[in-house]
Design a protein around this nucleic acid. Structure first.
Length: 558
RNA sequence: UGGCCCAUGGUGUAAUGGUAACACAGCAGUUUUUGGUACUGUUUUUCAGGGUUCGAGUCCUUGUGGGCCAACCA
């Protein structure tokens, strides 16, 4: 048998890594410096997580650094709350920016550069209305026409710009535009706006400015000031690159370069900030950190591990293609991470009482069970076993289908880490729902010292009724029922009505009464759960992060 | 009807002119006191036509299909 098998994605580079290696080899750059440039107008989501992993990951791999730069050029939508949240999310994901900067740190320099361009006749103040500007801009297939203000002298423009800055004009009265090419096939080159007037309070510069630079007139300049070698963004910015380069060339400043990769889409998820904001505002979810949200805050509260997210982001790759990633890939990485570290605990979400009729009343014994079979060093714990127990309703069926190997009348099942029991009879409510199952146990079948010789296929979890404690459990499911809700006219039409199911009286083992917010467990046979911050002493709340894979449930669906 | 970007299994990503592979998903099985985990096997792939070449997923060309661009948003 050959053991030489060394192909796979691990030894191949994505296109950004190829560019970087090339730049390093040819000496275009000595060290790479990337940046992650969020606008502080919302919370980070899983799409940003990929961008963070790409930017920080690339720098880490090649011994470079990454700055965090808040793109705060629009005071009307940006807030300090978001700055704090974003910083927190990035650190949680496992990254530390080399520097934390703000585009607003550079407003003075950017203004000086604007004056320079005006002085050279490469920018002008335009008093046209937004409508007039739009009409003269043309369309993608028709060239635009020059604005009547395009040939104002540099001297007059300099004066006008200064008056814009000092607050002489009201909002929207005029704009500063770059003089590029009104006939360019690239719409962004048709005399793009550099500054607009906004008499608004800025979260950092206060009331110092009433003109604010547009994205194109701030981003590349900020990159250049910081000496960013590789300015990585998503595909929709590709047409901006021509402008990015144009400004840098006109100013003869450090030539940062822009590279674009495709953003990713996730099935059953929307990712646009606008839509996420709508979900929050309209109360379809309980805030930005609702565990159903694809925000980092939501996923953290849901119980996702940052390393799972990093691995997922790496696995989906970096390309320029449209793509729609299956949610099951994310879930795979979540389970993989949690399987190794989550301690196992017993919980019964939908209790059904079991009475072991041949087990003496009042008797109790401690039975040992492992905390995590994947990690023996986590040791064992003891569970109290008594005559009256709880099992899941799901684990009993009066008339089971073929291959059902849990409990049914006349059938036997193993209580995990305890005994084998046989179901003798069942007592039902008036509506026919089983309410108590009477069983007998096999004393010599005790786990670890089973001499019964019996073989049973099913193993189920259980709780001593007398010792079990109540807890709230929140079961989360996908927020949308459609694979690609974002492409519908109304994405909210496919909202999943059962994306949250609250079980206020689940039963759990006593040890789960003393937990801390954020702690993660596997509830044996049910899934991974995480302690919600809503928990109070004695009243824990558990969020279901993700279910376990369930071959039986899958087979039943067919 | 202008410009830019893109096209490899169900999904995503490799293969850098020389045997189309990896992961997830699916299916089948082994192990298992979690119908979990682990392990094994397996179904399924180069958008179409033309060209260059001994040889094309890869290069050229023409189509076709998809995405992006006409905020004083980023």
């Amino acid at each position: 048998m050959s053991t030489e098998k060394t192909s796979g994605p691990n030894d191949s580079l994505n296109f950004l890594e190829e560019i970087v290696e090339d730049d390093l080899r040819t000496g275009r750059v000595e060290h790479i410096l990337t940046r992650f440039p969020p606008e502080p107008n919302g919370y980070l989501h899983i799409g940003h997580a990929k961008s963070i992993v790409v930017n920080f990951g690339l720098a880490q791999k090649y011994g470079g650094k990454t700055n965090l730069r808040f793109d705060d050029t629009n005071p009307s939508t940006e807030e300090q709350e978001y700055v704090d949240g974003i910083l927190n999310d990035i650190r949680w994901l496992g990254y530390n920016p080399a520097n934390v900067f703000f585009a607003s740190d550079y407003f003075d320099q950017i203004y000086e550069w604007a004056k320079h361009l005006v002085g050279e006749g490469k920018a002008y103040v335009d008093f046209s209305t937004p409508e007039e500007i739009a009409v003269l801009k043309g369309t993608p297939t028709e060239p635009g026409k020059d604005s009547p203000y395009r040939n104002t002298s540099p001297e007059e423009n300099l004066d006008l710009l200064e008056r814009m800055r000092t607050g002489e004009f009201p909002d929207g009265h005029c704009v500063l535009r770059a003089k590029v090419d009104m006939t360019s096939p690239n719409m962004l080159l048709r005399d793009p706006i550099m500054y607009r007037i906004k008499h608004a309070h800025h979260h950092r510069t206060g009331d110092k400015w009433c003109i604010y630079p547009m994205y194109d007139w701030a981003h590349g300049q900020s990159d250049s000031i910081e000496g960013i070698t590789h300015s990585i963004c998503t595909l929709e910015f590709a047409p901006h690159r021509a402008l990015y380069d144009w400004f840098i060339e006109q100013l003869s400043i450090y030539p940062s370069h822009q590279y674009e990769f495709s953003r990713f889409n996730l099935t059953y998820t929307v990712m646009s900030k606008r839509k996420l904001l709508q979900l929050v505002r309209e109360g379809h979810v309980n805030g930005w950190d609702d565990p159903r949200m694809p925000t980092l805050a939501g996923m953290r509260r849901r119980g996702f591990l940052p390393e799972s997210l990093r691995e997922f982001a790496t696995r989906i790759g970096v390309t320029k293609r449209e793509n729609l990633i299956e949610l099951s890939l994310l879930e795979f990485h979540i389970r993989e991470g949690l399987n190794k570290i989550a301690l196992r605990r017993f919980a019964v979400l939908d209790p059904l009482k079991v009475v072991i009729e041949n087990y003496p009343e009042g008797q109790m014994e401690w039975l040992e069970t492992e905390n995590n079979p994947e990690d023996p060093e986590t040791g064992k714990r003891a569970l109290p076993f008594t005559r009256e127990l709880f099992i899941e309703q799901d684990d009993f069926m009066e008339n089971p289908p073929p291959k059902y190997f849990r409990l049914f009348p006349g059938g036997m099942v193993r209580l995990k880490s305890a005994f084998i029991i046989r179901c003798d009879r069942v007592e039902k409510d008036a509506d026919g729902k089983p309410n108590t199952v009477y069983c007998s146990y096999v004393p010599e079948s005790r786990s670890g010292q089973d001499t019964s010789g019996l073989k049973v296929q099913g193993v189920i979890h259980w709780l001593s009724a007398e010792h079990a404690k109540q807890a709230e459990v929140r079961l989360y499911d996908r927020l949308f029922q459609l694979e690609n809700p974002g492409v519908e006219d109304d994405f909210k039409k496919s909202l999943n009505p059962t994306s949250l199911q609250v079980i206020s009286h689940a039963m759990v083992e006593p040890a789960l009464m003393e937990v801390t917010s954020g702690e993660k467990f596997q509830f044996t046979r049910l899934g991974y759960f995480c302690v919600d911050p809503d928990s109070t002493p004695g009243n824990p709340v558990f969020n279901r992060t993700v279910t376990l894979k369930d071959a039986w449930a899958k087979a039943q669906k067919k």
